[in-house]
């Protein structure tokens, strides 16, 4: 029974494999459409980020970490205490009458 099922599915797949659902592509207007699409195909921010390789990330991460530690050590006396202090320090930088 199982063998029959398998062979009928295999037969279907073998026949379907030989069928070209929509025939061959037409070359009419291909270049025009493609050029128009390329003209408006500016990469989004997410795509720019995605295009960065893991090697780039691996190189940049220690640099950013080192810069953060350097700034933190340099200003460790000025750093605010707790979340409240942090918020009030950042709020002081905003051009708002808080």
């Amino acid at each position: 029974m199982k063998h029959e099922d398998l062979s009928s599915l295999d037969r279907l797949l073998a026949e379907a494999r030989r069928h070209r659902p929509f025939g061959e592509p037409s070359s009419f207007g291909f270049e025009t459409r493609l050029r128009a699409a390329l003209a408006t195909a500016a990469p989004s921010f997410a795509e720019c980020l995605a295009s960065l390789s893991w090697r780039f990330s691996a190189t940049v991460f220690p640099v950013i970490l080192a810069a953060f530690l350097f700034l933190a050590m340099r200003h460790h006396d000025d750093l605010p205490e707790g979340v409240g202090g942090l918020v009030s320090q950042w709020a002081g930088l905003l051009p708002l009458p808080i």
Binding site: L12, E15, A16, H19, F22
Partner: peptide
């Protein structure tokens, strides 16, 4: 797809018809 049916250039071609029917069944699956 109706366009796929219309694209049948030679309806007498049994082999091609059989292939298309197989493809439609496989697509359903």
């Amino acid at each position: 797809d109706p366009a796929d049916r219309r694209d049948d250039r030679d309806p007498a071609d049994e082999r091609e018809r059989s292939r298309r029917e197989a493809w439609e069944t496989v697509r359903l699956l």
